[in-house]
Design a protein around this nucleic acid. Structure first.
Lengths: 280, 280
DNA sequence: GTGTTCGTATAAGGGATGCTGATGTCGTGG
DNA sequence: CCACGACATCAGCATCCCTTATACGAACAC
């Protein structure tokens, strides 16, 4: 199973077409046909239906592996390259809720800041496209975030902050001193996958429900808060990131908003300085 | 970076010799030389010192990635193969402390039982060599074990059991009703990496210390207990696995011995039956 | 210092692999 | 029914990679 073939397979599925994938990869169409045929011959099962081009069940299984595999390959290459690389631009990938005032203050010397979800941020560090990641997400107090395993990276907790439920004014629960998530599982929630993904919340809180309401595809927590304040659904945010609406602390289950710093082994330099500043 | 080359690289490091690796892989020596040269040319750095053959720092980095990568490749292949595979022998990989009487009773129809550490057991399931894994290890109560991420596997908790410190009779602490691990960090411990690895204990308990004493390379918990009872060092075992010695419950930090069942998506069959029996 | 030996690197040749361009085949839409 | 779009197949050719043969270099013995 050549990674080259795997990458072609991923592209074909993404494009939904052999010819389009060939264009994108700089091959001719027969080359892509033959690569897919080689993969299917190797594994002994069809991976794609043709016309329309869609993954079979076996193809879906393979897809689940292909992404992490190709990422890990890039990570290996990046890890080796880091040893002999000259210090260059300093890129930080941060979660949308990771940048409080004092965290931002610690980012001296950073050239580029990129906002990305926890998994993407870690992937950027692993593949060498970013030097540091500030991954954020919900977690039980003092529990680590459940970050994908992409190789030998160092992870340190940076901060944990109380979470609040953001409600519109006049909501029946707005007067409560604290709220339990179980009581809100049937309510409508703002579905903001780039700010506070509902599926991660479900996993951490160990509950089903949290019906998705309006979907917000950006990564500005203030917008999510405003949507919640306007009654489009509830949302859960760290206290400092909810500028409006009625904010009621979450009391059960005990979940906090956690920020972790992820980086590879770093030579002394500006990146290491930022790590020191963030962890002190 | 061809996985083929990666695999050759791993073999060369393991054998400590190009020629020996060539023999093992069924190549000639120049083929191995050329493969390593190709890898080094691709990555732009020497990966091995020659005479003696040892990984350079870049090579060590690559090695850290190569194992998981090759495992993941096997896992992908196995995952696809599972879809069209006929039900065959049913193999279970179990941790050394996973098999209590009732757990063993649930293994109806199992053909082969293999004892392996948690990481190895999971790797066996991922690569399709085993159908089920019963991984075991220390963990905070109701926290999952920290198993390596090898792809889309299902994990369910099976059991949690109290841990006891095994002491020789007459030990100054033998009369205590309960023990704190911090107070024992400076004591000598039985180093039984296949039964209860000290490094995992350190990670879970978040402490250094636990000085390794006698090393036991087998995986029989009774032997570890006997070594402890004979005064060769302390050891920590689930209450049911310590047949001798003075057994004092561990009261802090709160750590239990946890067993988790790991398996891929299973078609109905004997394997699924065992899963049902173990999780009910 | 010199010779022997062991182990890796290099060179040349041949077979397999994999890409391109041309053409075939099948399903869809006019 | 025909034309068109899209994937499969085929032939040809360049490249890659493995094998055999040989060169090179370090370690060791004397």
């Amino acid at each position: 199973m050549d990674p080259h073939l795997l990458s072609t397979f991923v592209t074909v599925v993404a494009e939904g077409s052999f010819s389009a994938a060939a264009d994108r990869l700089g091959y001719t169409q027969p080359a892509v046909s033959q690569q897919i045929a080689a993969l299917e011959a190797d594994l002994g099962v069809p991976l794609l239906t043709r016309r329309p081009v869609r993954p079979t069940r076996a193809g879906e299984r393979l897809l689940e592996h292909a992404g992490p595999l190709l990422l890990r390959l890039r990570a290996a290459r990046a890890d080796v390259a880091r040893l002999s690389a000259q210090p260059r631009a300093l890129t930080v990938a941060a979660g949308p809720l990771a940048l409080t005032a004092d965290t931002a203050a610690a980012l001296a010397g950073v050239t580029t800041l990129r906002i990305a979800g926890a998994a993407t941020a870690v992937a950027l560090v692993a593949s060498g496209e970013a030097d540091l990641a500030l991954a954020d997400g919900p977690a039980a107090p003092s529990d680590p975030l459940n970050l994908p395993d992409t190789g030998p990276l160092t992870t340190v907790g940076v901060r944990e902050e109380e979470l609040v439920v953001v409600l519109p004014e006049g909501h029946p629960l707005a007067g409560r001193p604290g709220l339990r998530l179980d009581d809100l599982a049937d309510a409508l929630w703002v579905d903001a996958p780039e700010v506070m993904p509902l599926d991660r919340l479900r996993a951490v809180a160990r509950l089903d429900g949290l019906r998705p309401g309006i979907r917000y595809e950006g990564h500005d927590p203030a917008v999510a808060a405003r949507l919640a304040a306007a009654g489009h659904g509830l949302t859960l945010l760290p206290a400092s990131a909810a500028p409006c609406g009625v904010r009621v602390p979450l009391v059960a289950p005990r979940i906090v908003h956690r920020v972790e710093l992820v980086h590879a082994a770093l030579p002394p330099g500006p990146a290491a300085e930022v790590v020191r500043a963030l962890t002190s």
